[in-house]
Design a binder for these strands. Structure first.
Ligand SMILES: [Zn+2]
Ligand SMILES: [Zn+2]
Ligand SMILES: [Zn+2]
Ligand SMILES: [Zn+2]
Lengths: 226, 226
DNA sequence: AAAGAAGGTCACCAGGTCAC
DNA sequence: GTGACCTGGTGACCTTCTTT
């Protein structure tokens, strides 16, 4: 299994925070997440394309990429992955090779968790975002720690698969370049969501896993959203 | 690990911008790079030989040397050096002592990142490898060795080298020094400052770092799995 | 157990400082 | 302008703990 970091393209060290990443991006994400204020605005209008060599040059864009590929603190967990997961990884990898060449852009790299792109589910949801506060957000106590609400069948879809929370919420609100006038004072608003809830990032709770097996054909699993 | 500055020969302070250099050359390069205009043309026809004592006397030549030894803004590396790398350093050092005497010229000093020169030679071996040539572009990787998945043995070869590479590691590296596939262009455009380095030197890209022994087979991921 | 991820550690480096 | 010295960020390696 030879995955590449979905953020920068370097050989991946494992599945971290919801995506295959290298040690560097893993650490970076872990650090940044708790310290968003340390990230200064992109000087390139938020359009940097992250790769192995330049990944350290723009933290804002690196973080954005992390979120884009599905990383999230809450969407992580300990322990080994199910077979289901591994199998899918392989398949996906192969498929990708067929059409993209081994080195297809890290940009879209391996699409495990719903493609970042359209998954965005409009920003509308985001617009009303603060809504997050609704109520389920108090998941706080144990975002995931102890086996949450899952049935854990033999082949349960791997974690992080459906966690698209950050896609809609964080990515857009926070990192997406908010149309700032050039000299915008940065602020990069991603301080922390107003809505308290302490969740600087809230995850709506865990969407029921797409029941996997039983094949559906070309594993679609991705689209699901709830 | 006492390395010498590849630019001037003084004891190196570390690996900076892609090469082992002293503090001075590091700073010099960092400064000059953003300010090429400040460098005046060489008065000696671009033939100055840089050493510890005269390094400050001709900026043009000093900078040229920097580039020659592989320095580049994008070639910098962060974080700790991998064990694999360290071992390599030692070996190389030893080898060098055997044949060069402890005090071999700083000129050729330690060749880690293949000098942009003809270090290549063995690349032919590369070329004839059928599959590789096709599109193995993402092959590279350096002795810095970005690690793959964990339970990594003490000296884990970077990227896709097979696991029992470890065993033969010593032997191989000694007999067949690693050579990089050139995935990097290495143009090193500025052979000699055409006329004043004033013209921009585009050094965008960086000579691929040294690199580990080449692996031959295209990774057979199929076998492993599950 | 064994595998594998989160987190911690701290070797290392780009940059910035500021007496020369 | 130079380069010894600091500082904050990075990432290879390691430890702890969860999941298979
Ligand atoms: Zn990465
Ligand atoms: Zn950027
Ligand atoms: Zn030097
Ligand atoms: Zn000169």
């Amino acid at each position: 299994m030879n995955q590449q970091c979905k953020v920068c393209g370097e050989p991946a060290a494992g599945f971290h925070f919801g995506a295959f990443t290298c040690e560097g991006c893993k650490s970076f994400f872990g650090r940044s997440y708790n310290n968003l204020s340390s990230i200064s605005e992109c000087k390139n209008n938020g359009e940097c394309v992250i790769n192995k060599k330049n990944r350290t040059s723009c933290k804002a864009c690196r973080l954005r990429k992390c979120l884009l590929v599905g990383m999230s603190k809450s969407g992580s967990r300990y322990g080994r992955r199910s077979n289901w997961f591994k199998i899918h990884c392989l398949l996906q990898e192969q498929q990708q090779q067929l059409k993209g060449g081994p080195d297809s852009s890290p940009e879209t790299g391996f699409q495990f968790q719903l493609g970042p792109k359209e998954e965005f589910k409009s920003s509308e949801e985001y617009n009303k975002s603060p809504s997050v506060s609704s109520q389920e957000s108090h998941h706080s106590d144990d975002p995931w720690g102890s086996r949450g609400p899952y049935p854990a069948p033999l082949f349960r879809p791997p974690f992080g698969y459906d966690d698209n929370f950050n896609k809609s919420f964080l990515v857009e609100s926070v990192l997406a370049p908010p149309r700032a006038p050039e000299d915008a004072p940065i602020d990069l608003s991603l301080k922390s969501p107003p809505s308290g809830a302490s969740s600087d990032i809230s995850v709506d709770d865990y969407p029921s896993p797409p029941s996997p097996p039983t094949r559906t054909t070309p594993l679609d699993l991705t689209t699901k959203v709830v």
